[in-house]
Design a protein around this nucleic acid. Sequence first.
RNA 1: GGCCCUAUCGUCUAGCGGUUAGGACAUCGGGUUCUCAUCCCGAUAACUGGAGUUCGAUUCUCCAUGGGGUCACCA
Length: 478
Amino acid sequence: MTQVRTRMAPSPTGEMHVGSMATLLKNYAFAKRNGGQFILRIEDTDKVREVEGGVKAIQEIVHRYGLDWDEGPGKGGEFGPYIQSERLEIYKKEVQTLIDNDKAYYCFCSKERLAEVKEQQMANKQAPHYDRHCRVIDASEAKKRVADGEEYVIRLKVPTDQEITFTDLLRGEITFHSNLIDDQVLLKSDGYPTYHLAVVIDDYLMKITHIMRGEEWISSTPKHVLLYQAFGWPVPVFAHIPVFLNPDGKGKMSKRKGMVSAASFLDRGYLSEAMLNFFMILGWARKNQEEVMTLEDYVKEFDPSDLSSNSVAFDIKKLDWLNGVYIRKLSPEQLKEKITPFISKNFPVEKIDQVLPLIQERLVTLADFDQLTKFFYGELNYETDLLLKKADSKELVIEELNEVIKLIETLSSWSLTDLEEGTRNLQEKKDWHRGQFFMMLRISTTGEKATPPLFETMMVLGKDLVITRLKEALNKLI
RNA sequence: GGCCCUAUCGUCUAGCGGUUAGGACAUCGGGUUCUCAUCCCGAUAACUGGAGUUCGAUUCUCCAUGGGGUCACCA
């Protein structure tokens, strides 16, 4: 049994998409499950679209998700370098063997001519494709034109009238007809390889056994198969993973419909563990049907052939639920550490240890912290009418407030039991409507209709602040 | 539009010829409770359609329809 080796090969052209991270997870898990290696390779062959710091950002986001690679940038490995722009000589050498074996040819067509051809084809309602204008150029003539310094690209000489079949782990055999395949550019005029050339060469040289990538690559896979054949290399196992659809189930998940970068979810208060768990259960279910699972569980069970071959909607509601599950699992120390970046500058830090337990089960994302705690500091701003809710009269509320203030001022100690017992006794003795009374207190001390339990909240606020706010409420009424 | 992939509740799925078609999220009820949340209980809700194959099709085959992907010197 040969060693399982998987890889993820992102390009540094922008922030990594959640779909890419989900695919990366699958590659990671499958390699780990089989005791193999997971390789990270940077596909930076598009110098036009590359963004500054992109290579570094890729490594960072993988680490932020709690994952790592066995070989790749920053790690090394015996099949390096793992950054394609550092492998240009390899591609040039390999593509030359293709030329020598008549599997590829030089093309001198200008971009203008290509555009014209395309326009013509569109006008005739034909599918746009390269018209193979340069395919017939004699090899020696081509060599001469290259030597003369004429600009060129190298194209794949796609065979005619041939069926190209490959096996996809999720779907079985997939067949394309070669006549429908374009003579793909392999080497660009700037000397860089295209994705198609580089991916085949690198996957072979890096001994990748299983190629798990997005479904959007299915239609270019026959080109890759042709290349493997042209090189005389064995074809690896393919597993094309379904794409994420927008939460509404319409169309491939895209920037147009919201934030899609893997980093943005973390920045919005989703836990990496919840994100990973979410990726796990989108399009796959473990044997016992349980949905909350650890990376370890997943690695033990994940098999790409069990993946659903249908594209799946990115259901934010389910993610929210999972995130809540993971937040509730956090120890006080873990929660404090993870939520720190989301704490407002105005929040009184000395109260954090008291506040966190009160809001933990109420957090959907870590970013909810502000909304849930803003009444612990700063001015309250609520409609006076709220104080009167369900009350028979304004006078009653005024009486209630006066009595509670008196009670709190004479409390022997500021303790939860004293405060709660005293207040409850007062309510019972006076026979005030319970719901009305407690809601009125909640509004006057927090300005909110929904808060953590009232007495715990008042304890955290402190005696002075509670009295101040009760008096402010009173003032609003008189 | 051509080519390729695909089709079970609103969503993610289990099912791999015979099931009261199961679970999770969401939704809606109810309970616990000072509100919200948590937690517990319950309910609504699905095999896209049509031909075959078969004693029998959600399950196998074909067609239609729907959905998705892809058609660059981008990955």
